[in-house]
Simulated scan of single mutants.
Amino acid sequence: MIKINGSEGEGGGQVLRTSASLSLVTGQSFQITDIRGKREKPGMMRQHVTSIEAACAISESTCEGLDIGTSEITFRPGAVKAGNYNFAVGTAGSTNLVLQTVLPPLLFADGPSHITLEGGTHNMMAPPYDFIERSFLPIINRMGPTVSARLVRHGFYPRGGGKIEIDITPSPLTRIESLDRGALRSVKGTAMFAGLPFEIAEREVKAARKVLGWDEDAIGVRELPEDQGPGNILLLEAEYDQVTEIVSGFGKLGLKAERLAKTAANRMKGYMESEAFAGPYLADQLLVPFALAGGGSFTTVKPSQHARTGADIIERFTGRKFEFDQQESGVFVVRSST
């Protein structure tokens, strides 16, 4: 039984999701206390409960203490089974965070799986769907499996109501080296909104273009049906030969369109001015598959506390350590080793 203090390191829901995912892959039980102990509202929220329920549903696992608001659970993993699964967060909680929990074990299942996830697809507390589809999954597919994603309906905070579908054809994970992102192919951006004034998106486009210096036709506006809102997100995308980086900025009450756009644009500018393969979101996501592949390396910008906490949990379950070595260029080389 692996015992984990959920307030360690970054102290968020990642500790819980990574533990459940790796428990299913390695067959090791775990007990976690003080779940999300460093959050303003500690304990399990709806999306965290759904993540653990999903982990149990794709296997013969049991979980003691599972409930909204609880701060301690004991998880005993069972055999993972391929199949057709439908999981509803029930709020604007992130569908992508539920996917993070069940995808790694289903990559090792005995057959293909189809997953339908309902809830938030564009949530400020998690990577948006677009990142999962165009940044993360292409790397997973390069490692051996075949995973495709389809967005059926957008779901913004606070309404939710989004829906995505994932098809998974498992295959052994092959280690890869991702040190060079290659040449820049294209850049583009979209200010997406639903149920809000058009001028908000226009102001975001103008402000982002000013920071990045991109051509006028590189960043556009997309209006979604009003019943999919209210919601707003600015998506900035840079496609390289080997990887696509997506930076997002989420609209919320009290946050000016110009400030949202400048923050997102400066994050993208910082990434493009570096030599890193992975931005901070992608670096977080690559740790588990690289460990399960038995090694590999990638370059990234300065690793977040989120990434370092994830690396600590991975080591508890797999014995694999991650090294974060800063280079003279300023980028970090992240390596998985025993």
Rank of each mutant, 00 (worst) to 15 (best):
I58R: 07
G93L: 07
G83M: 14
A92E: 10
L66M: 06
A54P: 05
A57F: 13
A57E: 10
G90T: 14
I68S: 07
S59A: 02
A88R: 09
V80W: 04
V98H: 02
I73T: 04
V102M: 09
Y85L: 02
G65K: 05
L103I: 02
A92M: 09
C56N: 05
R76S: 14
N96R: 05
N86K: 15
G65I: 05
G93S: 02
R76M: 12
N84T: 15
N84Y: 11
L66R: 01
A88E: 12
N86Y: 15
A88W: 10
I73N: 00
C63Y: 04
S71I: 11
T95Y: 12
A55N: 06
V98Q: 04
Y85T: 03
C63I: 04
A79V: 14
G78L: 03
L99D: 05
N96F: 13
T91N: 08
T91H: 08
C63E: 02
T101N: 08
T74N: 07
T70P: 09
L99Y: 11
G78W: 02
T95N: 08
S94H: 12
A88C: 11
E60F: 15
F75Q: 00
C56H: 04
K81N: 13
L99G: 04
F75T: 00
N86R: 13
A54C: 08
C63T: 03
F87P: 03
E64P: 01
G90C: 13
V89S: 02
A55I: 03
A57D: 08
T62A: 08
L66C: 01
F87R: 01
S61A: 09
T101R: 11
T95D: 06
S71Y: 14
S61V: 02
A57P: 11
Q100F: 09
P77Q: 00
N86M: 14
S59L: 05
A54L: 06
L103T: 01
T70N: 09
L103H: 06
E53K: 10
L66D: 03
T101C: 13
T101V: 12
T91P: 12
E53V: 02
V98Y: 02
V80C: 03
L103A: 05
L99I: 10
A79C: 12
A92I: 09
D67W: 08
T101S: 06
A57N: 06
C56M: 10
S59P: 06
L66V: 01
T95C: 10
V80N: 03
L97F: 12
L97G: 11
L103N: 04
L97E: 11
E60D: 13
L97R: 12
T101Y: 14
E72A: 07
T91C: 06
T70D: 03
G65C: 04
T91M: 06
V102T: 01
R76T: 15
E60R: 15
S94T: 05
S59E: 01
C63D: 02
D67Y: 13
F75H: 00
V89D: 07
T95W: 15
Q100E: 07
L66E: 01
T62R: 12
I73L: 01
